[in-house]
Design a protein around this nucleic acid. Structure first.
Length: 274
DNA sequence: AGAGATACCTGGGAGC
DNA sequence: TGCTCCCAGGTATCTC
């Protein structure tokens, strides 16, 4: 399931595939994903060269020459696939972008948690207005121990909830949150405002390391995620706690425990993480 | 205002 | 075997 590293990997692949090319036709086969798709057909997206494909948080931004941009969120099961005309349409392929070079880009999404919207940018390279409320990028220099301490200090919720809050820092989902807290040896159940400055520094560095390693590996792969050419990411085998309920902790052997936070399952070692 | 719950959606697995 | 139930996930939106 795509988190930030997956969006990063996909954006890079899309940039290679789309840059300089334009859409000649867009076909939609479903009324809506998270939002209605009909606006894609009447938004001036055709015959405009793609300037760049980039990422902000988990959103993929496909910027066209006329300053229109497609803003795509992969949700849980969104997948882009390069196809050729005549390829049979798969069951959950909802959108087909026909390119000026005769090739196709298809968007598939089983659970329909994904979104594809159109927005107009204020200037070339600008951030879409619909993404303005997002917090800092975890791999940027804005994500510092001082910043995190400030944000956590005014929140009484569990620290895991705060770290996954997109208004604080973007792109840390359930899987990477679990790995980060395990490697940082900090309990995800702790009240956010009780973390020390030192612990915030550890969290920042650990989260960065986890995400960077995942990007390096091409993203975590579960049943749904594939890169554009169909190859799988390799990070899955490196997960230390996520999905390992009852298995021995790799550090101390204590069985990994779960808790429910914000309606999501949290995996952690009750002995190592304080 | 901040926090917690819920809807959205499908496939896969467990249990009967 | 076939049925029902539950779970997974991020985000928007609701309620308290």
């Amino acid at each position: 399931m795509p988190e930030l590293p997956e969006a990063h990997t996909v954006a890079n692949a899309l940039n290679l595939f789309l840059q300089g090319h334009s859409f000649e036709k867009i076909e939609i086969f479903i009324d809506k994903l998270r939002y209605p798709l009909a606006p894609l057909l009447d938004a001036g997206l055709l015959n405009q060269p793609v300037l760049e494909v980039r990422r902000r948080a988990r959103y993929i931004i496909i910027e066209l020459a006329n300053r229109r941009a497609l803003v795509v969120h992969l949700g849980m099961t969104g997948v882009f696939r390069q196809s050729e005309p005549g390829d049979e349409r798969r069951k959950h392929e909802h959108v087909i972008f026909h390119l000026d070079n005769g090739r196709q880009l298809r968007f598939e999404c089983t659970r329909r948690f994904s979104s594809i919207t159109v927005c107009e940018l204020d200037a070339p390279g600008a951030e879409p207005e619909c993404l303005a409320a997002l917090g800092v990028e975890p791999l940027s220099t804005d994500f510092t121990a001082a910043y995190l301490y400030r944000e956590l200090h005014r929140r009484k919720c569990p620290v895991k909830i705060a770290l996954m809050d997109n208004a604080v820092v973007v792109g840390i989902g359930n899987i990477y949150a679990a790995e980060t807290f395990f490697k940082a040896r900090i309990s995800p159940l702790r009240p956010a405002h009780k973390l020390t400055r030192k612990e915030c520094a550890v969290l920042v560095e650990t989260a960065r390391g986890v995400l960077a390693a995942a990007i390096e590996a091409g993203g975590t792969t579960f049943s749904d995620y594939r890169q554009l050419d169909g190859t799988e990411g390799l990070f899955e085998r490196e997960l230390l706690v996520y999905g390992r309920k009852g298995e021995p902790c790799t550090a101390c052997g204590t069985p990994i425990t779960t808790a429910t936070q914000g309606g999501r399952t949290t995996f952690y070692c009750p002995k190592c993480q304080h």
